[in-house]
């Protein structure tokens, strides 16, 4: 195959486009490093002196470490449990689709994708409180359950494409269904697991509505919810507010910078499947 020459026109257009993407982030960093007095000057000008005190103040005011820990625990547990449980359920369904019960289950889960969240929001708020689940544990359960519809849909499609012969050899050796799943199927699902894990992590980390309505104790607040709660205290101190926004986005940005190839690669692969 011959190597085509670089299309510089498109390259430069795309480079210009990145300015649109990066500009809000530049503005955020810029303002987070300024003093309130400098806000009178043009907003784009660089800070006279980098003021890291804003970050320290924001950490103290918003209880950053506690919110970070809450977000981290929720995201970590949700990702691990979602991948483990959702793939397992999908495996059982995919291998029994010829049976009415499992076929019905499949449609039961998948049809829930059409249910808009607001309709279950009002009763859910009350129900989780009655069950004493208006806390991080409840939040974790809800994320796992809400992801199930979509994940069953994509896992089942993927598992069906795995030849059943691979399992039959293991059955001959007398392995149980559980063992077959862990030893044979689960490793084969790795690409799908990665895709699901990434999408789940992004959802659980950034979600705002569910923590807003479910969590009762302010000390359970996750990072996005914290930004909302402290809106009023930031008032017009935009420097403090933007330092806090930046801190809240930073963990995800760092993970992304380190793992962007892997992340995009897996999302792309998931899409093709």
């Amino acid at each position: 195959m011959k190597k085509k020459k670089t299309n510089w026109l498109i390259t430069s257009l795309l480079l210009i486009g990145t300015l649109l993407i990066l500009f809000p982030l530049y503005l955020t960093i810029n303002i987070a490093l300024k003093t309130p007095q400098e806000m009178g000057e043009p907003l784009l000008s660089l800070p006279n002196e980098w003021r890291f005190q804003n970050f320290l103040d924001a950490i103290e005011l918003t209880n950053f470490y506690s919110a970070f820990l809450n977000s981290f625990i929720v995201t970590f547990c949700v990702v691990v449990l979602t991948v483990l449980t959702n793939s397992l359920v999908s495996y059982a369904i995919a291998r029994n689709m010829h049976k009415g019960f499992y076929k019905a289950l499949f449609y039961y889960f998948v049809s829930a994708m059409f249910v808009p969240f607001p309709i279950i929001m009002l009763p859910l708020v009350r129900q989780t409180a009655v069950w004493n689940m208006d806390n991080l544990v409840g939040l974790i359960f809800l994320y796992i359950v809400f992801q199930l519809s979509f994940n069953v849909f994509i896992y089942v499609g993927y598992i069906k494409s795995i030849p059943i012969e691979l399992e039959e050899a293991a059955v001959m050796d007398g392995a149980s269904s559980w063992k077959i799943f862990w030893k044979v199927i689960f490793p084969l699902l790795s690409p799908m697991n990665a895709t699901v894990a990434i999408l789940t992590a992004l959802y659980a980390w950034n979600d705002f509505l569910l923590p807003l309505v479910i969590l009762t104790d302010p000390s359970d607040a996750t990072l996005p919810l914290t930004q909302y709660i402290f809106q009023s205290e930031f008032s017009t101190n935009y420097n403090l507010a933007f330092a806090s926004y930046l801190l809240a986005m930073l963990p995800m940005i760092i993970v992304y910078i380190v793992a962007q190839r892997w992340i995009i690669g897996n999302v792309t692969r998931g899409a093709v499947k």
Partner: peptide, 17 residues
């Protein structure tokens, strides 16, 4: 004292908490 406090207080009312 959160923003939009009345809505949040009513959420708590629904939660009976």
């Amino acid at each position: 004292s959160p923003p939009d406090a009345e809505t949040l207080l009513r959420t708590r009312l629904v939660k009976d908490d």
